[in-house]
């Protein structure tokens, strides 16, 4: 079972390759969108690289819950509602959603994801 640091290093490599950023920019606290410039197209590229690097399968919607964020059941007036937040927490226990809960606007979701969230996601997949 890989250690957290081993996972972090491989996640870092995937992000450096997918986003064209420098090694030292990929810190645990760096946000994917704000700090590393990830755009929607990059998330699929990151999925490809994580799958290959860790030998895992990442189904659509697991890393990035586009289905929840676009559902009328879970989104009211552009904000994720209580049912939606419960769905996100159940689906994505590896993400730290505390900040997002303060302003659960749908467009905020990609902005709050950090490198550490990616690491925790991979940990949940490889059982680390």
């Amino acid at each position: 079972m890989p250690s957290r640091d081993e996972i972090f290093e491989k996640v870092k490599t995937a992000l450096v390759d997918a986003l064209g950023v420098d090694d030292d920019e990929v810190t645990s606290n760096a946000t994917m969108v704000g700090d590393l410039g990830a755009e929607s197209i990059d998330f699929l590229d990151i999925v490809f690289r994580l799958e290959k690097s860790f030998g895992i399968k990442i189904p659509r919607g697991e890393l990035f819950p586009e289905d929840v964020l676009s559902s009328t059941e879970f989104v009211t007036n552009g904000k994720v509602n209580a049912a939606g937040m419960a769905a996100l927490k159940a689906r994505m226990p590896f993400y730290d959603l505390t900040k997002f809960e303060q302003n659960p606007s749908v467009q905020n979701f990609p902005n709050m994801l950090t490198v550490e969230d990616m690491v925790r996601y991979v940990q949940s997949k490889v059982g680390g």
Partner: peptide, 9 residues
Amino acid sequence: RSAKNVKYG
């Protein structure tokens, strides 16, 4: 000579 992360929006 080289290009990195040319992204089209």
